[in-house]
Write a protein that binds this DNA or RNA. Sequence first.
DNA 1: TTGAAAGCGTTACCAT
DNA 2: ATGGTAACGCTTTCAA
Lengths: 370, 370
Amino acid sequence: MTPRSRPNDDELSDCPTPPRRPTIVDVARAAGVSTAVVSYTLNGRSGVSATTRERVLRVADELGWRPATAARSLRSGPAAAALVVVHDQPFGTRAAFPLDLVSGALQTLGPDTLTLALHVAESPAGAALLMDRWWTERRYAAFVVTGVRVDDARLAALRTLPAPTVVVGAAADGGPPTWRHVVLDDGEAFTQLGAFLADLGHRRIAMVAGSESLVAPVRRAAALEAALVRHGIQLRTVAGDGPERASAALRPLLSAADRPTAIVTDDDATAGLVLDVARRLGLGVPWDLSIVAGTDSPACYLTTPSLTAVPYPVEELGRATGWALRAVLGTATSRRAVGADPVGGVDPPSGAVPVGRLVVRGSTAPPAGD
Amino acid sequence: MTPRSRPNDDELSDCPTPPRRPTIVDVARAAGVSTAVVSYTLNGRSGVSATTRERVLRVADELGWRPATAARSLRSGPAAAALVVVHDQPFGTRAAFPLDLVSGALQTLGPDTLTLALHVAESPAGAALLMDRWWTERRYAAFVVTGVRVDDARLAALRTLPAPTVVVGAAADGGPPTWRHVVLDDGEAFTQLGAFLADLGHRRIAMVAGSESLVAPVRRAAALEAALVRHGIQLRTVAGDGPERASAALRPLLSAADRPTAIVTDDDATAGLVLDVARRLGLGVPWDLSIVAGTDSPACYLTTPSLTAVPYPVEELGRATGWALRAVLGTATSRRAVGADPVGGVDPPSGAVPVGRLVVRGSTAPPAGD
DNA sequence: TTGAAAGCGTTACCAT
DNA sequence: ATGGTAACGCTTTCAA
C-alpha cells in the first residue's frame, strides 16, 4: 500500500534527508493509474470515472500531495500577479494603502485562484524595470499599478510588453485591450464637497493640493474647483506636497486679512498640519476656520476637533481590483484560466467605485461672520 | 545569422502571436554551442573559454534572453522569500512598517539575488496556512515573520515545516538552526527613556501599553518598568490597545488628583491620542504633562507640541533582515546558493539593531512642581 | 475511460 | 573546454 518513495532513490541515506514531497507520479503509482488520470482528476476535468476520481483524490490527500508551483508554471504560465509599490517619499499616513488594497483584492480572489504579491521599488522607473524583468522571466501573469503619476514610466513599460494590467485610480480608459481600469469616483465626492462648503456659507475657500505629479490629486482639485465655480466661488490653491511646503504656504495664507474661511486638503496628514498651523496662529477651528481632509483615515478622529473628511474606500477599491484582475487574466493571452468561483460578495464589476457621502465631524461649521 | 524561431513552429500563424521568448536552446543554436555551455556561461561558472563565454553572452543579449523563473525553480528551488503580513486590525499609523522593512531589505539583497514578496493574511493562523501551503508548493525558499504574537501560530507552523525563517523583533534566540533572529534593541532604548524621565524629575509616570498579545510591546513596557524601579519609581500601566480602550483608560487616569506627570505610549498614534485627551481636560503639554511616543514617526512632529519619541529604525531593521535572509539561505537545506555581492553598505550582520538616542521634542519638560 | 509519451526551460552529471 | 542528456513535476495531446 505504501509506495516506495522513489525508484532511483539510494537506499542508504533516506533517514536524515527530509522526505521528498510526493509528486503526481507517486500518487499515480499508489492509486494504480497513470499520471494523466491524476492530473485530470486534480484539475477537476471531465473524462475520469467517479470511482477513479474518488480514489485518486483520497490517495493524493493521504500522501499530502501539493502541486509544485514551478512545474505548473512551466507549462501553464504563472498564476500570480504583482503590485509594485513605488517608495518615493517616506510613507506618510496613507502608507497602508497598498496593504489595504491587497487585503480587499483577496476578498474577490480565492487564495487558490491567483495570488497577489506586493513588491517595493524606489521610483516609477525602478518599478517599470522590475515589471519588465519579471514579465519576461514569466514570473508574474499580470500587474497592478497604483498611485499613477502624470507621465508614468510604469504604464509606458507595461504598454510595450504588453502585460495584462490593472490600473487603479487613473483615467477610466486608455491602454491596450489587456488593461482594466479601476476608478474611484472621487470627482463626484469633491463636487459634493464643494456644494457642502458653499451651502455652509463659505465664500473664501482654499485647497492645499497634493502632489501635482500624481494623477488623482490633480483630478480631485479640479473637481472641487469646477464645483465651486458653479457657486460663483473661486478656489485658491496652494502647493501642499510634503509638510514643509505645506506649512510654508499655509502661514501667509492664514495670516492674511482675506484669509480663507475653509481649507480643503488632499490627504489626512496635511489636514492635521493645517489644524496645527491654525492653532499656532490663534485661529479657532471650526469657528474661524473650517478644515476638510480629502482622504479619511483613522487619524482624522484623533485630532481635536476631529476632522471632517472625504471617505476613502480602499478595501472596496481592492475588491474591484480583484475583479479586474480576473478580467484581465480572462481576456489576455493568458496562460491559465482563472478559477471559477468568486469568494467574496457577488458584486459583478460595475462602474466606478463610489466614494460615499462626506463624513462630517467637528472641523467644519458656517464661517464666523455668518 | 538570425536563427529560425522554432524548429517545430507552424509556419502560418507566427505573425499575430507574440514571438516566443528565446530559451537557452535558441542561444545555444545561435552561438553554435551546447546548452550546457550556455548555462555555465550565464551562471558565471568556470569551465568555459573566454572567447566562447563572450560570444554566448553577446548572443544571449542580442536575442534578449532572460531566464524563465519557473524552469529555474523547477531544478534549483525557488529564489524568493515572502513576508506574510497579518492584517488583524485595520492598519493604523505604523502600517507602513512592512513596506519600509522590505525597502530596507532590498538594500542588502540585490534585486537579482533573491526577491522578497509581501503578502497579506487575515490572522496569524491564516498566515501560517499560507506559508505552509507555499512551502510545500515550493513557491518560496524562506519566510520572514514580523509582529510576533505571544503564542504565534506562524512560528509553530514554520517550526514543523521546517522552513528557513527570519524572525524580526522577537526573542534573540530559539527555533531550529534554519532560523535567524533580527532583534531591535528597544529594551535598551526604554531603559534610557526611564532614566531620562527620572532625571527630569518625574515621579508619577504611567505607560499606555500596546497590545498585550504582541511580544515587542510587552518587552518594551517591562524594560521601562525595570528602569524606573531602579530609580525608586513604580510605573503605572494602563491598557492601550486601540483608540477606544486607550481613551477610556486615559480619562480617569488624567483626571485623578495624583495623575501622572509623564505618560509614555507604545506607539505614535496613541501618543497623539494622549495629547488630545490632555488638551480636552485642560492640561498643558508639556507643563502639566509630559508625553513620550514609544515609536517615532512623521506624525510625531505634526502635533502641537511635537512629540518626544523613541526612534524606530525600520529601514535598518530591514537591512538586517536582508542579511539574515542571506544567512538562512546559506545555512538551510537551500536549493540554490544566494548571490555573491551585497549591494548596500558593507555592514556585516552584527548583534541587535541599535535604536539610537531618544528624540527630544516639545512634549517633555520637568514636572510642574519642580 | 485510461495509458504512454512528448514537451516546458533549466541545471547538472558524465563523457569526450 | 565542450557536448550529450537525464532529471525536475506537471499538463496535454494522441492512441488504445
